[in-house]
């Protein structure tokens, strides 16, 4: 069977790289005695696909992987995994997938980043409004296509601030993967460039991932 799992990575694990996270999951699968499937060949590996890649330095509340395994009860899977995962990393939910379901990378197209700032929402609000009024936001591309400029503005779906009593949380809903990928560090630089200085940003994380269809935001877990 094919299984899709949603997991959370706590703040203490924010410095894990993607390969580290894959090893965490693979080792947990072995410790939990999950009947995972192996690839063929001299170098067999577990058929796991890390659908989302958490950048080094941020933590995430809703990440995903897909796994191929022999039939297994979903509750048992979650219980066994959560017994062996390091504290702070937890499988939150899972479901079985049809064999033809598209890979995570090909269906997730939006993500929400969150920034906790030590300033009042009233101070932050106008700065965010200023960003949203821009017609284009041209930045040099940092990914594989170096020396190319890209426009972030079409991928900036929403930018709002939430009152949290002792401060505020900025939430940015952005486009990810194809056709336009807004990186976390690009978002961070955008905010600091508009007067939200780095030392007032107390924490940041990725709130979640979505499959955006028009204005509707669907969960990757519930949408095959």
């Amino acid at each position: 069977m094919r299984l899709r799992a949603e997991y959370a990575v706590g703040p203490d694990h924010r410095f894990l790289a993607n390969l580290d996270m894959m090893h965490v999951m693979e080792r947990a699968l072995r410790r939990a005695d999950v009947p995972y499937r192996l690839s063929e060949g001299f170098n067999p590996h577990i058929r796991i696909s890390m659908g989302t890649v958490l950048p080094v330095g941020i933590w995430g509340k809703q990440e995903f992987f897909d796994l191929e395994l022999a039939a297994m009860d979903l509750d048992t899977f979650m219980k066994r995994m959560n017994r062996v995962l390091p504290p702070g990393i937890e499988v939150k939910a899972c479901r079985s997938l049809g064999t033809g379901a598209p890979a995570l990378m090909n269906s997730i197209n939006a993500a929400e980043y969150a920034f906790r700032v030590g300033r009042s929402p009233a101070e932050v609000e106008p700065l965010l409004a200023e960003i949203m009024r821009l017609e284009e936001i041209i930045v040099p591309s940092r990914g594989k296509k170096k020396d190319v400029n890209k426009d972030l503005r079409p991928g900036l779906f929403a930018l709002k601030v939430e009152d949290q009593g002792d401060g505020a949380v900025i939430r940015a809903l952005v486009s990810v993967n194809e056709p336009l990928n807004i990186r976390f560090d690009e978002m961070l630089d955008l905010l600091t460039g508009f007067g939200i200085s780095r030392d007032t940003i107390l924490d940041f994380w990725r709130e979640g991932h979505f499959i955006k269809r028009g204005e509707r935001l669907l969960s990757p877990l519930l949408t095959p």
Partner: peptide, 9 residues
């Protein structure tokens, strides 16, 4: 940075 944070299994 992961070199400097401990908290391993």
């Amino acid at each position: 940075p992961i070199r400097y944070v401990g908290a391993e299994l």
